[in-house]
Design a protein around this nucleic acid. Structure first.
Lengths: 323, 323
DNA sequence: TATGGTTCGGCAACCGGTTGCAAAAAGTAT
DNA sequence: ATACTTTTTGCAACCGGTTGCCGAACCATA
């Protein structure tokens, strides 16, 4: 039913190998022959069968992209950018969702392994050991997670956190809280370390918490109890939940407490008050990660760490400390 | 390097065909032999190569899922449900994003066609002609789009719109506006038709608009000009943008104008005022669509229309008309 | 014209499974 | 014991490309 390479060969009077080479090794075939073959192929509507190609070359021309939760608005821009970049390179991207479950994540990787040439692991919750073991199985690139020796794309949350803390101290806040994320999150650890290293402020850490609105809501009680007047939340969803939870307890943002999120998701621009946040260059991260991954697919062993800048965006959820 | 069927055959002293059948046609092989083969396979860590299987069977065991915009929070729950359901059936799902561009959508379908067994088209903006032509190429299921004779999963926005209009009239609103979505959107057309069919109210239609917050913001001026006091927006994003735009013009929701959205996205529960909205059973739609698709992949020609219920969720963005 | 070097294209094996066909083995009826 | 089924297994072709190898054709140089 479908047009195969043999149909094209027959119709253009050459051997199948010539047709094959016309596509995948143009320099090995006479330009005239090649144009004729391509014309016939075009005419017949020939499309190479990727499964067949995969069988001999061992390249599926597919990539896997594993995220903790597609519904988390942090990921879609990254996914879109990765897909667009992959398409540019004639690759496709499988997106899979682990529901924040490390077990599911591992299974998913196993299943995917045979069908893709490489995997992008975004904010993985796996242990370092597991990640190191994985290296034998398939090329991958980590996003937002640091494991020594592995190709990685990071966004500089550490710096973001320092900017956030500085912003809060400039506003006069002296007692801060960091509402941390899931255990296993590199981002969360980075934030903590950066905040802990700042002098002249008093910082408490509250967590771990699920990286969701519900997580933020639940953390409100702890924040109130902590007596902090400035809060750095694991991400914008948590920040939004937290603001809601504080409101329920009669604590108003930014009048009584200042809150800073991370990610700069759209919802943060829409919530009231508009969220002060650390913006992450997610689209750039997606593009770069794809290119790094393809490189290590081809080169067998590329390694490297790319660190992308983050920025503090001041909106309405932070304000001067009351004296 | 990887373990193949031949390795398993050698190690268990049977022919490759027996190994193959142990997996894909168990009833054709002696139970004892089979358990032995499976044990050896397990032992060696054998995993069937899907590309090879695809080559002979013509089944890739992959599905395509095409959405207008992953970043639109309406889609993720649908995607997650579809992926989970597909995994249950030993299928994988490719998600692709068209950026709301019908041209990109068509290209994407073409590229995907050779790599997947079927495609889920979610809220496609293609013309009916294109969709009908597509039928020759690959099995597909439409979600949120009605084309006669095509397998389809719909959510009953018509009924949702009637409930919304009734709700507004009960609150005393007599002049309503419908802020419509993109041209080509079935949902938008349904809403319009349902609203137009209601008696005893005065309805104006404002649109088309992009299905985004920006679209809603931009529509605010028209809404004010229309003199409507009750508004049904194409979706929650538009509704949120609209509320924002109205606020900029000094029009307060729900005091001056009542607004109802569609989709029940998470952000709607977080915005101020909390959004009254028509909830869509997206997860169910994803599951059912996958099953319908697999059915028509197997059966060659399954057709059918499934209509799912919607519900009106009253929150804070609607209130009594001022007299 | 003979020689050596390129370029081009055909041949055929191969990737890793699946499947129709037929032989072998086991079971049943006569 | 023989003939006939039914079950189980092996054989080999096939899916649709890719690629190493070799010979033919072509070109330039001596």
């Amino acid at each position: 039913m479908a047009v195969t390479i043999r149909d094209v060969a027959r119709a253009s009077g050459v051997h199948v190998s010539t047709v094959s080479r016309s596509f995948s090794a143009p320099h090995l075939v006479n330009p005239e022959t090649r144009t004729r073959v391509l014309a016939v192929a075009e005419d017949l509507g020939y499309r190479p069968n990727r499964a067949a190609r995969a069988l001999t070359t061992g390249r599926t021309h597919n990539l896997g992209l594993i995220v903790a939760d597609i519904a988390n608005p942090f990921f879609p821009p990254l996914i879109k950018a990765a897909q667009a970049q992959a398409r540019l390179r004639d690759y496709h991207v499988f997106v899979a969702d682990t529901d924040e479950d490390p077990k599911a994540e591992e299974d998913l990787i196993q299943t995917l392994t045979k069908q893709v040439d490489g995997v992008l692991l975004c904010s993985p919750r796996l242990t370092n050991r597991t990640i190191e073991r994985l290296r034998e199985e398939i090329p991958f690139v980590l996003v937002n997670r640091r494991v020594k020796g592995m190709p990685t794309v990071l966004m500089d949350v550490g710096r973001g956190a320092r900017l956030a803390v500085e912003h809060l101290t400039e506003l006069g806040h002296r007692r801060l809280a960091v509402v941390t994320g899931p255990s296993g999150s590199w981002t969360s650890k980075e934030m903590q370390e950066a905040a802990a290293a700042m002098n002249e402020v008093d910082v408490v850490f509250l967590g771990p918490n699920p990286p969701t609105v519900a997580g933020g809501l639940a953390a409100a009680a702890d924040v109130v109890a902590s007596g902090a007047t400035g809060v750095l939340a694991y991400n914008d969803l948590v920040a939004i939940g937290l603001i809601e939870g504080l409101a329920e307890r009669g604590v108003e943002v930014p009048r009584d407490v200042s809150v800073i999120g991370v990610d700069d998701i759209v919802a943060g621009r829409l919530s009231r008050p508009k969220l002060t946040t650390i913006a992450m260059p997610t689209a750039a991260a997606g593009r770069i990660a794809v290119d790094m991954l393809l490189q290590s697919v081809d080169a067998e062993a590329a390694t490297g760490v790319t660190m992308l800048e983050t920025t503090l965006i001041v909106r309405e959820s932070t304000g001067e400390a009351r004296t």
